[in-house]
Amino acid sequence: MKYAERDAFEVVGIEIRTTNADELSSRGKIPALWQRFFAEGLLEAIPHRKPGAPILAVYSNYENGIHGAYSLLLGTEVTSVDGLPEGFVARAVPKAKYAIFESNQGPTAHVVPDVWKRIWTWNEGARAFVADFEVYDERARDPANAIVDVFISIVAP
């Protein structure tokens, strides 16, 4: 695990509201969100995409830490949030300090839940629950053999 500070940035994409309990049951919404994102080619439809920016999965609007509802936005970093097409949402990710967890290499359907299991057993008191995000960069282009970084906002020491 590494630590870094990141300046504020804006992300545009599509968003759902869910809970970890729902995602661990048959009521999970995240797989359908990913399917829609790729099936409808939504990355290419996002205006003002920052050149070379990876796909981001941004977790925000936490209701009660890991136990409550949260929002998940799939999208990418943008240079402007002006003129968004219908159905797209903009989310500002504030400047924060992060603990960065790197997944193992393998199928995203396995390595991403595995890295989140590590995060959930990590010192929850250090989490800020402001905005966390997964980074799907060039190392995640092949979903059968991917590495994903997860940035967890932390309380500054």
Rank of each mutant, 00 (worst) to 15 (best):
I14D: 01
T18D: 12
I119M: 03
S80F: 01
H67D: 15
I152W: 03
A57D: 02
S103G: 04
Y62N: 03
V111A: 07
D137I: 10
L42I: 03
H67M: 12
E15M: 05
D114Q: 15
P31L: 05
S26N: 13
V148T: 03
G106E: 06
K97N: 14
G83T: 04
V130N: 04
N64M: 02
V78K: 02
D132E: 00
R27T: 10
K117G: 14
F129W: 10
L33P: 12
V135H: 00
E40K: 11
A144I: 04
Q105I: 06
G52H: 13
F9S: 07
P54C: 05
I154A: 11
A45K: 15
V130L: 12
D114K: 12
N64G: 07
E86V: 13
H110I: 12
V81H: 02
L84S: 01
E77A: 13
I55C: 06
L43H: 10
R17Y: 07
A57E: 07
R91E: 11
A8N: 05
G52W: 09
S80A: 12
W122A: 11
K50I: 09
V11C: 07
S25C: 05
S71A: 14
D82K: 11
P47M: 03
A126V: 12
W120M: 06
P31A: 08
Y62K: 05
W116S: 09
G52Y: 12
R27D: 15
I152V: 14
V155H: 09
G28K: 13
L33W: 06
V78T: 10
F88M: 15
G13T: 00
Y70G: 03
F151Q: 03
E63F: 06
V155D: 14
F9R: 03
P85K: 00
D7V: 08
G125A: 14
G125N: 15
Q105G: 07
G125E: 15
A57Y: 01
N104Q: 14
V58P: 04
G83V: 10
Q105R: 15
R118F: 00
F133H: 04
D7W: 06
E124P: 08
D82L: 11
A144N: 14
P51H: 08
V81G: 10
E86W: 09
I119K: 06
N61T: 10
V93N: 00
V130G: 01
R141D: 15
A39N: 15
Y59T: 02
L56Q: 03
